[in-house]
Design a protein around this nucleic acid. Structure first.
Length: 211
DNA sequence: ATCCCGAGGG
DNA sequence: CCCTCTGGAT
């Protein structure tokens, strides 16, 4: 059902994951993974990227789109790491979101996948699916996070995020959701005369991989 | 045309 | 709250 849902960005350290996640905005993970090896080879640490030539960084990450804004973010974020966090990526949400270019979504990805700190990643997919499944009525990411947090044990938050996002990417699309082939259709409050009980879909999501 | 695991600025 | 930033695949 959720085969091996996991973070699909390549990284070998919290720093690399942070950079990769910032680069992943509005791009596929495959594309991010195609530029990060050269980027990390040229700039292995926050100190290196902090003093990088923006033109060179722009060139390296160009295929990921938004390359000027992203270059500004990752150099600025590296400078902030060097100046305020001893060159290390902080493992706390409140610290991470003070970094330029790092919002709550990016911070939770880093916490969940590099620090083993449970975090709900309320991205565009999670935002959409959690309403379709009746987990929340809200469109506000912070409110959604609060509502969903009440439905699942904390230790499941990271894997839950991967599964919801995985499902959103493959079946529950924004425009034309593939309900006809969706394995969760019968448990979905938004499909036909489906259940109105939000825990129906929740239970199935919690079952995890079975294929 | 539409989509891709967003964030900052006005 | 809306706008902008951006390229590549489908």
């Amino acid at each position: 059902m959720f085969p091996d849902a996991h973070c699909e960005l390549d990284f070998t350290s919290p720093f690399e994951l942070l950079i990769a996640t910032v680069l992943s905005a509005q791009t596929t993970d495959v594309r991010v993974n195609s530029v990060t090896p050269a980027l990390f080879a040229a700039y292995p640490s926050a100190a290196d990227l902090a003093s990088a030539d923006p033109a060179h960084v722009e060139e390296l990450i160009q295929p990921t789109g938004f390359f000027r804004a992203k270059t500004k973010s990752i150099i600025g974020l590296s400078q902030a790491l060097a100046e305020r966090f001893g060159g290390e990526v902080p493992g706390k949400l409140d610290d991470l979101v003070t970094l330029p270019g790092v919002g709550r979504k990016t911070a939770n990805v880093v916490l969940g996948n590099a620090f083993d700190v449970p975090g709900l990643t309320i991205d565009t997919h999670f935002n959409r699916l959690s309403r379709r499944w009746g987990w929340t009525q809200s469109t506000d990411p912070d409110q959604i996070e609060t509502d969903v947090a009440a439905l699942f044990p904390k230790k499941e938050w990271t894997i839950l995020s991967h599964r919801v996002i995985w499902h959103g990417r493959r079946y529950c699309h924004a425009r034309r959701p593939a309900c006809g082939v969706c394995p969760l259709a019968q448990l979905c409050p938004s499909f036909g005369e489906g259940p109105t009980d939000p825990t129906a879909a929740a239970k199935l999501v919690r079952d995890g991989p079975r294929s």
